[in-house]
Amino acid sequence: MNWIQRKIYLYNVTFGLYMLDWWERCTFNILVIVLMCFVLRYATRFFKRYVC
């Protein structure tokens, strides 16, 4: 098991994704990606406004 596979395994075990079907796991991952996009967008706007 290489480093990337180990991190994916830890992600699945930490959030309990190993119990879900493939389509439920994909839905959860899509929601996480969308949430991270919103957080990154907010962070960049915050830093542009208050830091620069």
Rank of each mutant, 00 (worst) to 15 (best):
L31S: 09
A43L: 05
K48H: 11
Y11N: 08
R6N: 12
F46R: 02
F28L: 02
V32Q: 12
C37L: 12
N12A: 04
N29G: 02
W3M: 06
K7F: 03
V34A: 09
T44W: 07
L40D: 06
W3G: 03
T44V: 13
V13E: 15
W23V: 06
M36R: 07
V34S: 06
V32K: 06
A43K: 04
N2L: 00
K48C: 08
E24S: 11
L40S: 08
I4D: 11
V32I: 11
T14K: 10
Y11R: 09
R25Q: 09
K7S: 06
L10R: 08
C26E: 15
Y42K: 10
I30L: 11
I33Y: 11
C37T: 10
M1R: 04
L40M: 15
F46L: 00
I30V: 04
I33E: 03
L17F: 07
F38M: 06
C52G: 03
A43Y: 05
F28I: 01
R45Y: 11
V13A: 09
N12I: 05
G16K: 02
W22A: 13
V32R: 04
L40V: 01
T14R: 12
N2E: 09
R41M: 07
F15M: 04
I30A: 11
Y50A: 02
Y18E: 15
G16M: 01
R6I: 01
Y18D: 08
Y42D: 14
L31E: 14
N29Q: 13
N2F: 07
V13W: 06
T44A: 07
F15H: 05
C52F: 13
V39Q: 08
F15V: 05
N12R: 10
I33N: 00
L35M: 06
V13T: 14
Y42Q: 10
T14H: 13
V51A: 07
L20N: 03
C52D: 10
Y11T: 02
L20S: 01
V34L: 14
R41I: 05
W23K: 10
T44G: 01
R49C: 02
M1G: 12
N2P: 03
L40A: 09
K7T: 07
L31A: 12
V51E: 11
I8F: 03
M19T: 12
D21E: 15
W23D: 13
F28D: 00
L31F: 12
E24A: 09
N29L: 15
Y11K: 06
W23P: 05
R45W: 05
M1H: 14
T14Q: 10
C26P: 00
R25Y: 02
L35Y: 07
N2I: 02
L20Y: 04
L10S: 14
R45T: 06
F46S: 04
I30N: 08
C52Y: 15
L20H: 05
F38D: 01
K48N: 15
R45S: 08
C52E: 10
